[in-house]
Simulated assay, not measured.
Amino acid sequence: MSPRPRSTSDEEILTAAARVISRVGSGRFTLGDIGEEAGLSPAGLVQRFGSKGGLLLALAEHRASGVPGRFAAARELHASSLDALLHALASIAHEVDTPEALANLLAFEQMHLDEDGFHAHALRHARTMLAEIRALLDEAVEAGELAECDPDDLSRTVQTAYTGALSTWAVYRSGTLDDWLRGEVEAVLEPYRA
């Protein structure tokens, strides 16, 4: 007899987990909180992920593996490589709408950096993001949107501006995170615009 088909996908569960963590923090949520958000029992979550730690590790992997899709979707929406870059970067932080949510998600990202599995996913996330930024900047130079530049340096600077903008928005609390991120990255790109 084959097992019953799952009515809720792992992706839906992990998306629900990200919402819960952004609301209550990675140290305070329970499997019951995520189960309620995803429409599953805590036992069902344990059956799928093994433990709360297993679910957190799966979420870290899910966030890292989702980066290429965000950039691909942005390319589909925008003819301009720079517009696609701004869209992709903003979409990575799409679930953040308050400084508290940002603080909770950043705490999740940094909480387990000393653990090998979590660090491996964080490093893959960062490297993949850097490669995607670099590819769009190369395309922007080729299309004449940007002047010739050192794409390695500019890619790292864009990634650093993006990461820093997450923290500074939570402090300044000026406008939406989307607008803040775009403004900070555009300021970095402005001197290179053709």
Rank of each mutant, 00 (worst) to 15 (best):
M1H: 14
P5A: 00
P5W: 00
R6W: 01
S7D: 08
S7R: 01
L14Y: 03
L14G: 05
T15R: 14
T15Q: 13
A18H: 12
R23L: 12
S26D: 09
T30L: 11
L31H: 12
D33T: 13
D33E: 13
D33Y: 14
G35K: 01
G35N: 04
A38M: 04
S41N: 09
A43E: 13
A43M: 12
G44K: 12
L45Y: 10
G50H: 06
K52M: 10
G53M: 08
G54Y: 04
A58Y: 03
H62I: 03
R63V: 14
R63I: 15
A64C: 06
S65L: 15
G66M: 12
G66N: 14
A72S: 09
A73V: 06
A73Y: 07
A74I: 12
A74F: 13
S81F: 11
S81T: 08
H87K: 08
S91A: 15
S91H: 15
S91Y: 10
A93G: 10
E95C: 05
V96M: 00
A101S: 11
A101L: 02
L102N: 05
A103W: 04
L105G: 03
L106W: 01
L106M: 03
F108N: 04
M111L: 13
G117D: 06
F118M: 01
H121F: 01
H125S: 04
H125Q: 03
T128W: 01
M129D: 08
A131L: 03
E132I: 06
E132V: 08
I133A: 00
R134M: 02
R134H: 04
E139Y: 02
V141H: 05
A143M: 10
G144S: 03
A147E: 15
A147H: 15
A147L: 15
C149T: 15
P151V: 14
P151R: 15
D152K: 07
L154V: 10
V158G: 00
V158H: 00
T163M: 00
G164H: 06
W169F: 05
A170M: 05
S174M: 10
S174L: 10
G175Q: 10
L177F: 08
D178R: 02
E184L: 07
E184R: 13
V185T: 11
E186T: 11
R193Y: 03
A194F: 12
